[in-house]
């Protein structure tokens, strides 16, 4: 029983991490329909920016996270402005954009290795506390991971529903063509979601830096999981991305309760496979297509 409880809490923590990754990626994907592969290395770079600022430069953590978010947002906007948009303007299909994004992925990941070195990096001297409730253990960083979802997701939800730019994002997610017709500047909205989505990834990036450290190749799994979580949850739904993230976290954790851990990498994909086959609109994607 205590194993079950521990796995449950692990699932929540892992799910919180995935949920934020999915929210950032999903925002970009649902609004622009661009499979932004380079989201992965941008997340990595965010982690390294947090490392440089919090580590060698000794900035306080919130400031480091802010710096990471700003760099990520800039990179996101750049990738849209100088790569994806020109391709779309030349009538390149989404698949072409995807491969171009892959090119960017390769470039950014290797640049990260060149600039920051190939080993892992951790924030020297940072030590989160260990806590336990009964048989269940967790760390301070784990708490932050959960809290970050609890703060960011409602804020984003309110922004999307209430604020003008947020409403524009939702309109474009719903129907880009229609949004253009009613006078929404879809290019501006796209830049906004690239900035927002990438900036959001800086939060899990900073927290994972504190938890496990950063390394140049951490981006691939991150963007992959984010993509999967978005589809599992339902494209175009904030609730769905969050649910998808938590679902993956839970599956990865509780799914291995009785199944050997050598299947860890594939178990979420088995679930994904079933979800898409049985409920192609995703867990929460009922309303939109």
């Amino acid at each position: 029983m205590s194993l079950f409880l521990q796995l449950f809490v692990n699932g929540l923590i892992g799910g919180a991490h995935y949920a934020l990754l999915a929210v950032g990626f999903g925002l970009i994907f649902a609004t622009t329909r661009i499979v932004h592969f380079a989201y992965g290395p941008i997340y990595t770079i965010a982690a390294y920016v947090a490392w440089v600022t919090a580590g060698p430069l000794h900035w306080p953590l919130p400031l480091a996270m802010l710096a990471a978010a700003m760099v990520a947002a800039l990179l996101g906007v750049f990738s849209y402005q100088f790569l994806y948009r020109p391709i779309e303007e030349r009538q390149g299909s989404t698949l072409v954009v995807l491969i171009a994004s892959l090119g960017l992925f390769i470039v950014l990941e290797n640049l990260t290795g060149i600039v920051f070195g190939t080993g892992g990096q951790t924030v020297a001297g940072f030590e989160g506390g260990i806590h336990f409730i009964g048989p269940v253990f967790f760390t301070t960083v784990n708490v932050w991971q959960i809290v970050s979802v609890l703060i960011l997701v409602p804020v984003l939800a309110v922004f999307l529903r209430r604020a003008r730019p947020g409403k524009a994002i939702l309109a474009m997610t719903d129907n880009a063509e229609m949004a253009r017709i009613v006078g929404i500047d879809t290019v501006k909205v796209s830049m906004l979601v690239f900035a927002l989505g990438s900036a959001i990834s800086a939060v899990p990036a900073t927290l994972i830096l504190l938890r496990d450290g950063a390394n140049p190749s951490m981006g691939f799994l991150a963007v992959f999981i984010a993509f999967v979580a978005v589809v599992v949850g339902g494209i175009g739904s904030l609730r769905g991305a969050v649910a998808g993230g938590f679902a993956l976290g839970m599956i990865e954790s509780l799914g291995l309760w009785q199944i050997p851990t050598e299947w860890q990498n594939s178990i979420s994909f088995v679930v994904l496979f079933l979800v898409v086959l049985l409920r192609p609109q995703g867990l929460f994607g009922a309303a939109r297509r």
């Binding site: 171009a100 290797n110 060149i114």
Partner: peptide, 20 residues
């Protein structure tokens, strides 16, 4: 790593200017 960077840049450049 630098060669991969060049490779990625070339891939992007081709698709950027000739998406078809």
């Amino acid at each position: 790593k630098s060669r991969l960077v060049i490779y990625g840049v070339l891939l992007m450049a081709v698709l950027r200017f000739r998406p078809q």
